[in-house]
């Protein structure tokens, strides 16, 4: 399965970024092969508006089925839903590898509604 982890830096060893919409990097990881590719989200980060929506679009284009992150605003949530992408929720910052392990061990709850106030953040 292909999952995206929102990350504060370029590798899975780095701590995750808790905010989906304005995450600095997306790391696309394949849970079967363990292969990971990094995608720089800087362009969306500086979008005039709708950063969360753009991020959702990016993640959809990367072909992810699940996003592992800390918070998702209402617009990004709506967009991820429309793309059929599930959201696995982390309650605190941890390295990407740890997030991935916990996801595989089914320790992470699935988010069923937006959990941050959107608009510009």
């Amino acid at each position: 399965m292909k999952v995206v982890i929102t990350s504060s830096n370029k590798t899975l060893a780095d701590p995750i970024d808790m905010h989906f919409g304005r995450a600095k990097f997306f790391i696309l990881a394949d849970t079967e092969t363990g292969k990971a590719v990094v995608h720089d989200n800087a362009q969306n980060l500086h979008a005039a508006q709708g950063a969360g929506i753009q991020s959702a679009e990016t993640v959809a284009k990367l072909g992810a089925e699940v996003v592992i992150t800390g918070s998702v605003g209402p617009k990004a949530y709506k967009a991820l839903q429309a793309a059929g992408i599930k959201i696995a929720l982390l309650e605190a910052v941890c390295p990407g590898t740890e997030a991935l392990r916990r996801f595989k061990d089914k320790e992470l709850p699935v988010l069923d509604k937006p959990n941050s106030e959107g608009h510009w953040v």
């Binding site: 979008a47 929506i53 959702a56």
Partner: peptide, 22 residues
């Protein structure tokens, strides 16, 4: 439509999704 929108009000997912508030 999503490409032309300067205000990111349309996201292209499986179908275009409009965000009227933007």
């Amino acid at each position: 439509c999503a490409e032309v929108c300067e205000f990111n009000a349309i996201a292209m997912l499986k179908k275009p999704l409009v965000f009227p508030e933007l």
